[in-house]
């Protein structure tokens, strides 16, 4: 299963480091990253392979929620297939 991780918030140092370290600690492999910064507003989208993770989806989500609060950003992780289905005929 692949997941889409979205991080939205005010730009600051080390956002990617925080999130990628956390993902690595659960063996979640980052496949692609796309980020933009517009007027101090940071938006990043990551495609993550969740097949080899050493925990379950819910726990990973909880850890990301905790991290989001810590670095004062909004972080969401969702299954990738929802986006494919919604936008492809």
């Amino acid at each position: 299963m692949k997941g889409i991780l979205t991080i939205i918030g005010k730009d600051r140092v080390g956002i990617i480091a925080h999130v990628s370290t956390l993902l690595a600690s659960y063996n979640a492999n980052i496949l692609d990253i796309n980020q933009t910064v517009m007027r101090d507003y940071f938006t990043m989208i990551m495609l993550v392979d969740l097949d080899g993770i050493t925990t379950d989806f819910t726990t990973l989500q909880q850890k990301l929620d905790k991290k989001a609060k810590e670095i004062n950003m909004e972080i969401k992780i969702q299954r990738e297939d929802i986006f494919d289905k919604m936008y492809e005929v």
């Binding site: 889409i4 979205t6 939205i8 692609d32 938006t43 989208i45 990551m46 495609l47 986006f83 919604m86």
Partner: peptide, 12 residues
């Protein structure tokens, strides 16, 4: 491939 526009639209 990441389709940012679609993903951000869904989040919104």
């Amino acid at each position: 491939m990441i389709k940012s526009k679609n993903i951000l639209e869904t989040v919104k």
